[in-house]
């Protein structure tokens, strides 16, 4: 198992307009990330952690370095806002979660059934962010 997780991200319902008008994105995140959800060092921490992680592939309870956590959806939200979003972050996030009217789907399941922001991401996961439509 690698020291990073590869994700497929989709935006719909108009949210893609905030992300360079592109609905599909591929993304790689480090397996361990700051508990603070700070994304400024993400590529750095990824390489830092490579050695620690490669041999601990199967032992899920391997020590997690201080100040870090397994990468989760809340971290992903921060990463998307800080690195992929092109404009107006308030149309995507509100405090530490998505703004009202956005539904998050993890592998075609409502994120509420999967632990919401605390869901730990694994390689191959597909995340969909959809803005609810009102037109008719």
């Amino acid at each position: 198992m690698a020291s990073s997780v590869s994700l497929k991200i989709e935006f719909g319902g108009g949210l893609e307009l905030l992300f360079a008008n592109q609905s599909s994105h591929k993304l790689t995140l480090p397996k361990f990330v700051p508990i603070s959800n700070s994304t400024s060092l993400s590529s750095l921490s990824s390489s830092n952690l490579k050695d620690t992680d490669t041999e601990s592939a199967t032992s899920d309870d391997a020590a997690i370095p201080d100040g870090l956590k397994r990468v989760d959806v809340t971290y992903l939200l921060h990463h998307l806002r800080d690195h992929l979003l092109k404009e107006r972050p308030e149309l995507f996030m509100d405090k530490e979660t998505v703004r009202p009217g956005i539904l998050v789907l993890i592998n075609d399941t409502d994120w509420e059934l999967e632990g919401e922001g605390e869901y730990e991401l694994k390689s191959g996961d597909e995340l969909v962010f959809i803005s609810t439509l009102h037109g008719g």
Binding site: G14, E90, L91, R99, P100, G101, I102, L103, S131, T132, H134, G135, G136
Partner: peptide
């Protein structure tokens, strides 16, 4: 249950503003 809080108004478009392809409706 899905959307306890309404979206901010500036995030809500209408068919008049955003357009709509007829066959989709």
């Amino acid at each position: 249950c899905l959307f306890p809080k309404p979206p901010a108004q500036e995030t809500v478009g209408t068919c008049e503003e955003t357009g709509i392809l007829g066959a989709v409706t």
